[in-house]
Design a binder for these strands. Structure first.
Lengths: 199, 199
DNA sequence: AAACGGACTTAACCCGGGTTAAGAAATTTA
DNA sequence: TAAATTTCTTAACCCGGGTTAAGTCCGTTT
């Protein structure tokens, strides 16, 4: 089933047309490889052990990406929202089974493109390759920043940082998930919030 | 001053000749852009605030890369040894002043190539671009793994993990730096080691 | 309206790592 | 070789977050 222009978010269109200066032909051709996929709240887009065979643009909704340790505990690495690209980066690029779970926090509408198609397109349209190379660089920056944050800041500082940088998250993501993202237990987040509210 | 073949480590030569299948001409041409740079123990290859204008191949020696927080505390992100490529990745790619300090732990002999020259070479020799794209991907994998490690493991587990994965580090890096890498104080590492030795 | 289940909070206790301070060991310098 | 400096260890005390266990709140179901 074909994707109609009216079903694409403005941001999606702008990314290709304005930012990457795609022609109408290039854009339509690119779009023809995308397929829509719905992932209802709490359902998984990907699970550890599976191989990431596609990249997904989040047209609507939000997800959490997490790993599970030997004791069965979840550790949220990041949340993703509209206009983000979604994949288990390592699995996608190595072609090996991944280590990450990607679960919808809100009902998601994704626009997916297979690795096969994308690799073909990246050769045909170098601008597309440049786009994803740029995304890749930004991903390294943000992962490094996250690592440095975890190393340098206390739980309280990480919490205040999150409020400052991404206040919208608190409107859409349950506190228990935010706690996991901050590397503390829900009870500790609760205690921390109380401590902050009284001073 | 020119670099002679005999001064290049076998690994450096192999990377280009065997792994990337450079011709002798391509290799010699590439090498002609490299300059040797010595960084004695405790001296800095790069400091926060400076712009990374080059990449360095470590021909000999070891370094530590760290950030400094507002309280003046150092947080070591990683160590680098022979045959690694060295740079403040973010500063190199954004062209903006960096946030990282890179200091020689042992006397270092580096083979450096300017960003300008490398960008030119990457166009002339696509194989070279592919090499650094691959390095970049591996860097993302390892940074993500580090992040996940910091989130999932206790200090003791991170210590045991380091012994298992990189036992050589303990021969070359002072314990105080290893403590910083593990995100604990030197005293805590000492206590932890004692705890482990008695059981 | 009552019952249920999930999300969030509260509290008591415990423990690992931070902090501070001192001393021992190793390495560098004189 | 001695002195000085740096690195590593030990110990006592403290505190933040984990753990366990209830309890509250709220939306959904029956």
């Amino acid at each position: 089933m074909e994707l109609y222009r009216s079903e694409l978010s403005q941001h999606f269109v702008d990314t290709f047309i304005k930012k990457m200066e795609f022609t109408e032909e290039e854009f339509n051709y690119t779009v023809s490889f995308f397929k829509r996929q719905y992932v209802p709240r709490k359902f998984f887009y990907l699970k550890a052990g599976q191989i990431a065979m596609q990249k997904a643009y989040i047209n609507k909704g939000s997800t959490r990406t997490f790993t599970m340790d030997e004791k069965g505990r979840e550790h949220i690495l990041n949340f993703s929202f509209e206009d983000w690209w979604l994949a288990d980066f390592e699995s996608y690029h190595t072609g090996k089974p991944g280590t990450k779970y990607i679960q919808a926090v809100e009902d998601c509408e994704l626009l997916c493109i297979s690795k096969e198609a994308l690799e073909k397109l990246e050769i045909e349209i170098p601008k597309l390759k440049a786009l994803f190379e740029m995304k890749q660089k930004k991903m390294i920056f943000s992962t490094m920043e996250r690592l440095n944050e975890v190393k340098t800041l206390t739980a309280e500082e990480r919490y205040l940082n999150l409020i400052k940088k991404h206040p919208q998250i608190f409107q859409r993501i349950p506190l228990q998930y935010i706690a996991s993202y901050l590397d503390i237990e829900p009870q500790s987040l609760s205690r921390l919030r109380k401590r902050l509210s009284t001073k």
